[in-house]
Amino acid sequence: MHFPRRSFLTLLTLGAAAALWPLRALAAWVRPDAAFAAKTLDEIYAGLGGTPEPSSEITFLSPEIAENGAVVPVNITSKIAGTDQIAILVEMNPNPLAAVFNFPEGTDTAVQTRVKVAQTCKLHALVRANGKWYSTSRETKVTLGGCGG
């Protein structure tokens, strides 16, 4: 009686290959926890993967003077082709990263929301297009802080 050693080895190899295959699926989007916990802009850029360069193709609207820092409307529109992500940063907040938006194909790369701003500082709009980050910033004066009170 012969043990089919060769076919057994082949089976083993195939099994190992099948077990490794799902690893490819892990490359999908995950929440950038490190960026949300970061306390400085540089740490956030590291967490998001890349320092942004200034761009005039991003329209960023926010009030110059916000009476109530707890509710500051922001409106961001990116005209950069291939935009797939927009992030909002508030420089002087305890954790500057406020929100990240992902845009699938077919969605306008524009978003409007409201954020909390702890004190007068710069707000940054970050845009990722084709794997590169771009940014634009605006100063917002806050007469009443956004954290409790």
Partner: peptide
Amino acid sequence: DKVVLAAEWGPAVSQNPFLQFRFNG
């Protein structure tokens, strides 16, 4: 059934959050 916007938020988004966006179709 098509995802048109996916967002990750931190605590710095205002109370009773407002969100506005547009999609084609």
